[in-house]
């Protein structure tokens, strides 16, 4: 294209002008966002200069600003440390298992709860299912420890009733990961279901009525109406949880693990905690944090792009 079009007639410029006109008309909407944006800028963007620490040899006396650069040293070190690569592998395994099991569990619960006709039963069940979410892992871990105790725990009590040998679940490399996933389901299933229940509640009741007229069974309605209308929400939640793939559950693991299961349970966060926080290597910890964030963003962006290409869903 060698011909020169007058500026005002270039499509992009025309579009810009149109945009300005529309923006002025909708200025109330921008105003609405002003206060939240100021808050976010002050408390989130202003401290972001701290990310620099990942590329520095941090010295508290010099401060973040004046500490000397060491460029990518922290990042290079990561992949020469077999404990870090092991932690990376463990993180991915645990995360993927949780995505496969803990992620769909609340969807199933929401759909099943929706099928309960007795309001009282539904309410009570739902209330109970939230309960563990209100507690931190410090507390829950002590409960889990009691339930799974090889000597006092109810699980081993049952195992022994059936003539089995007690299992020390929390220090057994084969059982530790299933315990992690199951306790994660236990803690979050009810809470996770809330958002899907909210979505179900906004399904147009006409659709069910029309299906009734067609003589559809309960099960068919569930599969053909309820579940499909949850898809947009499922997609959003899935994309967002992809961004957390390198967070396999720090609090949970820190409170449940012990050196016996480091081999399968030591994740990036716990390893960095033992190295970075306990030993004051803030720069190292920041570098790992940045690494995790970049991977998370990359995953979210690509998942969103792929899903957008195939359907109209997506988080933006």
């Amino acid at each position: 294209m060698s011909t020169v079009t007058p500026l005002a007639e270039r499509p992009s410029v025309r579009k810009t002008n149109e945009n300005w006109v529309r923006a002025k008309r909708m200025k109330a909407l921008y105003l609405m966002m002003l206060v939240p944006m100021i808050l976010l800028f002050t408390f989130h963007y202003v401290p972001m200069y701290g990310i620099m620490v990942a590329f520095k040899k941090f010295s508290p006396g010099l401060g973040i600003w004046n500490s000397p650069w060491n460029h990518f040293e922290h990042f290079k070190g990561l992949f020469h440390d077999f404990l870090f690569t092991r932690a990376l592998r463990n993180t991915l395994i645990i995360s993927i298992l949780k995505l496969a099991i803990s992620f769909p569990a609340p969807i199933v619960l929401a759909v099943l709860l929706n099928e309960i006709k007795n309001g009282m039963f539904k309410r009570v069940t739902q209330s109970i299912s939230y309960l563990p979410h209100f507690m931190s892992w410090v507390i829950l871990a002590s409960m889990v420890g009691e339930v799974l105790s090889p000597q006092r725990g109810v699980v081993n009590y049952v195992i022994q009733l059936f003539g089995g040998q007690p299992i020390n679940f929390l220090s057994d490399t084969h059982f530790f990961i299933p315990v992690l996933v199951l306790t994660d389901v236990w803690k979050e299933i009810g809470w996770g279901a809330i958002i899907y229940l909210a979505a179900i509640s906004s399904i147009n009741t006409d659709m069910y009525e029309a299906a009734d007229v067609d003589g559809a069974t309960r099960f068919k309605k569930m599969i053909h109406i309820t579940v499909p209308s949850l898809v947009p929400m499922i997609v959003i939640m899935f994309i967002l949880s992809l961004g957390n793939i390198l967070n396999a559950g720090f609090d949970q693991i820190l409170n449940l693990y012990n050196p016996m299961v480091y081999g399968v349970a030591d994740i990036i966060d716990t390893y960095v905690y033992r190295r970075g926080i306990e030993q004051f290597q803030l720069d190292y910890a920041t570098a790992v944090g940045l690494f995790k964030n970049v991977v998370g963003v990359a995953l979210i962006l690509s998942a969103n792009a792929i899903i957008r290409r195939r359907s109209e869903h997506g988080i933006w």
Binding site: T42, F43, V46, P47, M48, G50, V53, I64, L282
Partner: peptide, 12 residues
């Protein structure tokens, strides 16, 4: 996705 970390937030 990104935050500055504990120290700058504390200083702020």
């Amino acid at each position: 996705f990104f935050s500055g970390g504990m120290i700058p937030e504390y200083l702020l």
